[in-house]
Design a protein around this nucleic acid. Structure first.
Lengths: 219, 219, 219, 219
DNA sequence: GATGAATGAGAATTCATTCAT
DNA sequence: GATGAATGAATTCTCATTCAT
């Protein structure tokens, strides 16, 4: 117990993990440095040694959680896939990322409200970069005629992202409202299908309709 | 400035307004009672006279802003309208409500993150009640065969709500990202059309398709 | 309701009565001017109009309650009575005074602890004056040989006073401890007899007792 | 001043000592946390670190001072002693305890007035426990015929206690009134003898005195 | 006379941060 | 590297008192 202390990396990791839990839970303002130190079972002073101050610690938590997004999103896309499948895959990847990273969801939530004051440009980058690929796929789909021509890819991407995010940021609340544990695998899968369905059956050009020039599609 | 003093109602209103501004801007934890008093140009003591304490003041701000929602939503629906138009009208009403009540958007944002700790059941009621009508319309649409049979009305409603909300809660961020003022009338209208389109072309059964049993619609 | 207001005397009396209740209950420091105004059902401002400030109001309460002591004690003594009966009568009068003036008991209690800071010399005067007569009787009794020669009248008087007072200042506590309502007439009478007995059988020179003839009296 | 710093125990002790002085002097309500911190020459924050809040600090002061009573009283009694000596010894022990613990006297005074709100049942326990032994001795004395048969031991004990206490709680006042320093050894001893005399010559059955044979003893 | 509104000084409590060991 | 102790600036809340009507 005293041997394993004096381990800088370990200590630092503990602090970061504790800080993540607390910041995620309470947000920056309500988070207490004392609480983090206690949670990390580490002397408060160490926080200042390793991270400078509360804000920098928070920033590091933010960075760590936002990095994950880039990491995960990237490999999800294979350019060879047809746009529809590609886009769906990306939406699904995003959905599961949110499912597995509730901390990211909450941190992003706090940052959005805080106007990105602390995340700063990282937030924008996240917003932009993370969506670039999806955006690209949509564009390809439009070009290939599988997505409607009048779609604005940026908005389209945003809608896709916002939809999943909206569910995850309200998950606990919805759980109470709907009296079910939305985090259960089945429920998540079912929800994902709803989302995909909801999105894509609006994005896709209804195949046959086009030909016939039948009743105006916009119901 | 000296004319309107010694006016309890006025003072109370000033405090409430100032509190709304500050709480909306910073959230409960970062808001300072001193800041509210200064913003209201009122002696700090008055806040405690009229509202008891910080938390009760916050609750009142919350209530005031949440009431608006109920008020607005109600008249938007006419049962006589066909489900599609009815639903669209409700989505549009909701959209414009959010557009005109940015404070509501932010307060709800804070509350969602705070787990509704302070809004308490008002939050759930808001969530539930506000959506009841929309829910009802969707159900009617399903019954009448204009909306897909496999839709879960609750999720459907949630998706519709979450989508608009997602845009408004990120509006400033998106403004920076897309380098445009999204609050401009044109942009809002255009965005609304995107949203309606996005939603409904997934909800509606593509009319002709159904008949012919053409290629599966889910692209 | 509006006619009977504007009655200066009435208002003043109400304030004084309310103040007495509150000061008695909480003591000077814990008493709140607001509480007094509320209790008196009078505008707070009136307190300042009629009494100047909190301290002066307190002083008036004090004076009112201390005056009673003088008033009551005086007629209790008839010089013609033999010392023993005279002293007993005074002790009894004092006892019943305390029984009927619990406010006096508490106010004096607060003042004793406060070092008489607020009561000032009134306290000393009360202490002195109130006891002068009793003191005198004791002295007469000593001279006449019915009280022990070695008694210090001042101490003697003090002991007599302190004893009764001690009971009344602990009455509620004792009520709990002994599981009975000490303020009930029977209990008070019985207690008074105990006190008189306790005191006087020590004060009086035991004239005879000869009956048994035994060990020296000072047990 | 700089040598003894960074010493938790020392700091805690300083705070407790300062708090005792202030609370004893002013009572709970008039005591200021700031004043305690200043008196202790300690940062105010430390009070909250070590004691939680003002009330808990007060409680600790109370407990510390009430414990002393138990500690002291216990060894004072030897069962082998004849009741009279035993009782006198206890009265004397109690007297000297009060003499040496003026803080206890004042704290108890505040608590009595406060209805034991803060001391809670400790107060009753103090009242009860501290007196149990004395009570027992009195009972033995009654059985053995050295104390009057009609004595109520509980009242008797209370009278004995109240008498000493009454003097010590008024000591400063009496000092002024009698123009002497009652805390001087001689004066205390003389006072104690008065008290013992006062009490016991009422408690003891006057065994002899017969010599003279005179008027009935109950003067 | 009476009232409700307003005030500023101060009270308890909390926080992020730094020192001494 | 690590720790417990310490700090001063805020922060929420309270109180006696005064002003304007």
């Amino acid at each position: 117990m005293r041997t394993r202390k004096r381990d800088a990396k370990q200590t630092k990791r503990q602090i970061l993990a504790a800080a993540e839990r607390i910041f995620v839970e309470k947000g920056y303002d309500a988070a207490r440095v004392d609480a983090i130190a206690a949670e990390a079972e580490v002397n408060k002073r160490m926080i200042y040694v390793y991270f400078g101050n509360k804000e920098q610690l928070y920033t590091q938590v933010l960075e760590k959680n936002f990095e994950n997004l880039f990491a995960l999103d990237a490999p999800a896309l294979e350019k060879s896939l047809p746009p529809v499948q590609g886009a769906k895959r990306l939406v699904r990847a995003h959905f599961w990322f949110l499912a597995k990273n509730p901390n990211y969801v909450r941190l992003l939530g706090w940052e959005i409200l805080g106007g990105g004051a602390r995340a700063g440009r990282v937030l924008l980058e996240t917003a932009a970069a993370g969506l670039e690929e999806l955006s690209e796929v949509i564009r390809r789909g439009i070009d290939q005629g599988v997505f409607r021509k009048d779609l604005d890819p940026r908005r389209c991407v945003m809608s896709l992202v916002v939809l999943s995010f909206g569910y995850f940021s309200r998950m606990e609340l919805l759980g109470v409202l709907w009296e079910q544990d939305l985090r259960q695998r089945d429920n998540l899968e079912s929800l994902l299908e709803h989302i995909v369905d909801f999105c894509f059956n609006g994005i896709c050009v209804a195949p046959s309709l086009a030909d016939e020039g039948g009743a105006p599609r916009s119901c």
